[in-house]
């Protein structure tokens, strides 16, 4: 069998997450991850009729060999069922796909669930990596609030793996050939057509990177005592996002969309900085996969110190301004 056949057999598809045509950083990571698997990579771009076309050069630079640009007709293209209809259309046209990568967002996982029901695929969520062993795909994930590492093999004909942010670093390659582009039209299924979007309002976006995708996240907890300005300043010096515990969002110190944890946003940044955060298990479950954890807390017995790489037992009102000032000074 030629090398080309080998790459094609068991091809990898990536559902490209985008917001109004702008590729999300996590989608670039998924393509980079797929490229590293040394298989043919199919990027799947789903849009409404007349929606923004796939940015083929950008997708190719990150790893796509073939771009499938799918227009959904007959229902709102952002509905879970519509995205599944689009993926099914592509999977029907390309019968070699053995692995599909989707983002491990709520939306991505719901897409995975419905597709699994339709195709008999096996789904692994919140994965930090994938490998091919003994003829099947296997995904790695950390479970039970960061306490256990697992590998989960997919025994079905198709593996759908929902990948957590920062599983790999997105990397664009220069001088990549234009990918071939295949256009599809997916007629929405009855499941999609049954749902009517009465209204959809974009929430105001901040200048800072989105929480789930940020490389650095500075999190404020009860210890900030109502004032997030110091947390925001530090986040800006580090080019990071601002997160919060549920206590801080429930108190209304910051919007609910900033909540990090099991029932908020799950994050796995390169750097997590917790300020006045106790490290409760609900919170830990949403951040335990962070690469480096730094905590500042005045209580030496705070649970967060049990899993922080670097802990400062100190008072935030002193440490935080000094830290921001010192970072500014060193950055010049």
């Amino acid at each position: 069998m030629s090398e080309q056949d080998d790459r094609t057999r068991g091809a990898v598809a990536v559902l490209v997450d985008h917001l109004d045509g702008v590729v999300k950083p996590t989608a670039r990571e998924l393509l980079t991850l797929a490229r590293g698997l040394d298989r043919q990579v199919h990027a799947v771009w789903v849009r409404a009729e007349g929606g923004p076309a796939a940015p083929t050069a950008e997708l190719a630079a990150h790893g796509a060999d073939i771009v499938h640009d799918v227009e959904v007709t007959g229902a709102d293209a952002q509905l879970t069922a519509s995205v599944v209809d689009a993926l099914q259309t592509v999977l029907a046209a390309v019968d070699t796909v053995g692995l599909l990568l989707v983002p491990s967002t709520f939306e991505g996982r719901e897409v995975a669930a419905r597709l699994a029901v339709r195709t008999g695929a096996g789904v692994v969520t919140g994965a930090s990596g994938v490998t091919f062993e003994d003829g099947r795909w296997s995904a790695h994930k950390t479970v039970l609030a960061g306490a256990w590492d697992t590998a989960c093999a997919v025994t079905g004909p198709l593996a759908v793996v929902a990948v957590a942010p920062h599983a790999v670093q997105a990397l664009a390659q220069d001088g990549v050939a234009e990918p071939s582009v295949v256009r599809h039209t997916a007629a929405a299924s009855s499941a999609a057509r049954a749902v009517t979007v009465v209204s959809r309002t974009r929430r105001p976006t901040s200048e800072r990177p989105p929480l789930a995708e940020a490389e650095v996240v500075v999190v404020g907890g009860r210890g900030v005592e109502g004032d997030f300005s110091g947390v925001e300043e530090l986040a800006d010096v580090l080019g990071g996002a601002v997160g919060a515990t549920r206590v801080a969002t429930d108190e209304g110190w910051i919007g609910h969309e900033a909540q990090v944890g099991q029932t908020g946003v799950t994050i796995s940044p390169r750097l997590y900085l917790g300020l006045g955060v106790s490290g409760a298990v609900h919170h830990k479950g949403g951040m335990a996969a962070s690469a480096t954890v730094v905590a500042v807390n005045s209580d030496p017995d705070a649970p967060i110190f049990e899993f922080a790489d670097y802990g400062v037992v100190g008072d935030l009102t002193e440490v935080l301004p000094a830290l921001t000032a010192e970072l500014r000074r060193r950055k010049g």
């Binding site: 096996g122 306490a147 256990w148 590492d149 590998a151 989960c152 093999a153 997919v154 079905g156």
Partner: peptide, 14 residues
Amino acid sequence: SATRVVNAAERPER
């Protein structure tokens, strides 16, 4: 089930 846990290990402390 089309998935099976093939390896599980308690994570060492950081």
